[in-house]
Design a protein around this nucleic acid. Structure first.
Length: 591
RNA sequence: GGUCCGGUAGCUCAGCUGGAUAGAGCAUCAGCCUUCUAAGCUGAGGGUCAUUGGUUCGAAUCCAAUCCGGAUCACCA
């Protein structure tokens, strides 16, 4: 049980004993005491004033006295200032927390709860490489999945690959026209970049053809429709749907190039999936759903055979779910896949990590799933995240302002190398160890940068200023971990402590913060918000850094103090490592 | 136009289930390495929490309106 829970329980008991009525933890608020006041945790008394018809001071005095008399192991003293009951927790209690957990690398993880959750993330298109926006998606999805695991869920990470459609045909057409049989191997190019280059070539050629047509007297609309390369692409899409062998073969080949490239990137950034769905397999799933939905009168059919759902009663619009030619639209395959996920894995919750541009779409999807009475439809959740933008605005592939995922990772590793060499602290590292270190620091900086802000909010990335390695960053936290490990290599933690130790303010601040870790994990899970972990771990590292500067661990005043600080350091390192691992960020032993 | 999201220090962001004098980092300025890793520490300056009204003992936080910015509202995905 956490300190706060113990405190709440004690307070409820005391209040009931004192005033003869029932209370719950919702009747009063418990905060951490502000540093300028004496105490560790504070009960805000105002909310009790009305029901008890007593002044805050009167309630506080009675409650404070009763709490101390009945829980001597927990509370030592109290003070009341302007309606706030500030309680001091016994040092012996903190010693116990420390002694029990300092060496427990599982501290903060919760017991299995028997629930199963699927987290779908990444969802790449197979016509171009991953960019910075995908990185936010990947880091978020992966981290949320880990946070669910740490909170006791069984987790299935899934990925839906958008491997068919007009966008892939564009790359395919351009390859046919311009490649002369070139392959990633023949050009020594990473497969996803190779295919992406032809996507760019398509757009260049398309633009050229449109301009020529306009010059020859066509309107812009006509030109855009009649450009030969576009017509060829549309024909190719039809051929694909018809299963024309040479088109299918080219499609399979080019996708395999892209997958090879993606695999490399995923491996580099640490993304992995338990299952992968391909749109080319799921896009027909809609048919059955539509038929069933018609039978349940969830959908209705127009005279032209198109099928619709009317969501005006839910404040949305009418939405088409099947075209008049009988083909399924985007939303239909999503419904099909949603059902398939439940059938395959019997999941309790289904999380979709998708950008906020699709808020409306996901709202519709969930509504339809509910109306179709899909199992656990109410537990479909769109984890919506904001776009990553540049100082100049959105990233635009046509203007070449897209920050490529592979490039930015490489750039970060390069910066990590430069900074490390400047500092010259790891001169005895082997070349292999150095490569690993640069990767750990560079990727860590990037992940932390993208995860430390609230997923819901859009964020600005400034490539000019790049990412700092000082302050509220991954490397700062990694650095503090390395510092602790450096001490622990020289000074073993024994563990047994004299119970008479009194905590100094910074020691107290550390243990109080460390004790909160399990609750932070739970909160991050409830909110599906990795930034809660990032902020917390940073604060731990920051507090430790002050403590480290202020007090010597190896040369502490007494042996007991030394052991206490070694335990604190050990627990800090464990919590940092554990918290960072939930973000997908490794922490080095030395840096 | 409808719906949804956002607006907090020069910049990037916390704080938003209402609580004490609104916090970090960067940037600026001033100090600190013969002592466990200075990717560090300490301090200073910097705020009309978009605006107005309301609810409350108490509002950055809740409600309403307004202003500004963004997303979305395809037989595209």
């Amino acid at each position: 049980m956490s300190v706060v829970e113990s405190l709440q329980k004690s307070a409820i008991n005391s209040l009931t004993a004192l005033f003869g009525q029932a209370f719950t933890e919702k009747d009063f608020q418990v905060n951490q005491t502000k540093p300028e006041f004496e105490g560790d945790y504070t009960i805000v008394l105002f909310s009790l004033v009305k029901s008890l018809k007593l002044s805050p001071d009167a309630i506080g005095t009675q409650l404070g006295d009763h709490l101390i008399a009945n829980n001597p192991a927990l509370f030592t003293k109290y003070n009341i200032i302007k309606g706030f009951l500030n309680l001091s927790i016994a040092d012996a209690y903190w010693m116990e927390v420390l002694g029990k957990n300092y060496n427990d690398i599982c501290f903060g993880k919760h017991a299995m709860n028997g629930k199963k959750v699927m987290v779908e993330y990444s969802s790449p298109n197979t016509n171009k490489p991953l960019h910075l926006g995908h990185l936010r998606n990947n880091f978020l999805g992966w981290s949320v999945a880990e946070i669910f695991k740490a909170s006791g869920y069984e987790v299935i990470k899934s990925c839906i690959v958008n491997d068919r459609g007009i966008h892939i045909c564009k790359s395919m057409i351009a390859w046919q026209l311009f490649a002369n049989g070139a392959t990633p191997q023949s050009t020594n190019t990473k497969g996803d970049h190779f295919v992406g280059d032809y996507y760019v070539k398509f757009n260049d050629e398309y633009k050229k053809q449109v301009e020529e047509l306009i010059a020859s007297g066509k309107t812009k609309d006509e030109a855009e429709k009649e450009a030969p390369i576009m017509k060829a692409t549309q024909q190719m899409l039809l051929d694909w749907e018809a299963g024309k062998p040479d088109v299918m073969e080219l499609w399979a080949t080019m996708n395999s190039w892209v997958y090879a490239g993606f695999d490399t990137t995923y491996k580099t950034i640490g993304s992995d999936f338990d299952t992968t769905y391909y749109e080319s397999n799921t896009y027909l799933l809609g048919k059955k759903i539509v038929a069933e939905g018609l039978q349940k009168h969830v959908f209705n059919q127009e005279e032209d055979n198109s099928v619709w759902i009317d969501l005006t009663a839910d404040g949305l619009d009418k939405k088409i779910v099947q075209r008049k030619d009988g083909t399924s639209v985007y939303i239909t395959q999503d419904i099909g896949l949603a059902q398939q996920k439940y059938e395959e894995y019997n999941i309790d919750r289904s999380i979709y990590v998708i950008g906020d541009e699709q808020n409306y779409h996901m709202k519709v999807l969930k509504l339809i799933a509910e109306k179709l009475q899909l199992p656990n439809a109410e537990n479909i959740y769109h984890l919506s995240y904001g776009m990553v933008e540049l100082p100049t605005g959105k990233m635009k592939s046509r203007e070449g302002t897209v920050v490529d995922a592979d490039d930015i990772v490489e750039e970060m590793e390069k910066v990590a190398q430069e900074k490390t060499e400047e500092l010259g602290k790891v001169k005895d590292f082997t070349a292999e160890e150095l490569t690993t270190l640069y990767h750990t620091i560079g990727l860590g900086a990037l992940k932390f940068f993208l995860l430390r802000v609230d997923p819901k909010k859009k964020m600005i990335f400034n490539p000019e200023e790049s990412i700092d390695f000082h302050g509220f960053t991954g490397p700062f936290i990694q650095f503090n971990h390395a510092r602790i490990k450096s001490i622990l290599r020289k000074e073993p933690v024994i563990g047994n402590l004299d119970l008479g130790i009194v905590f100094l303010p910074l020691e107290k601040e550390l243990i109080v913060a460390l004790e909160q870790y399990p609750n932070v994990v739970k909160q991050a899970c409830d909110e599906m918000n990795p930034s809660a972990i990032a902020i917390y771990v940073y604060n731990i590292a920051k507090t430790f850094s002050s403590f480290y500067t202020e007090h010597s661990i190896a040369n502490a005043e007494t042996d007991n103090k030394k052991q206490l600080r070694l335990q604190l350091a050990s627990m800090t390192a464990n919590v940092i490592k554990s918290g960072m691992s939930l973000l997908g960020v490794a922490v080095p032993e030395r840096m």
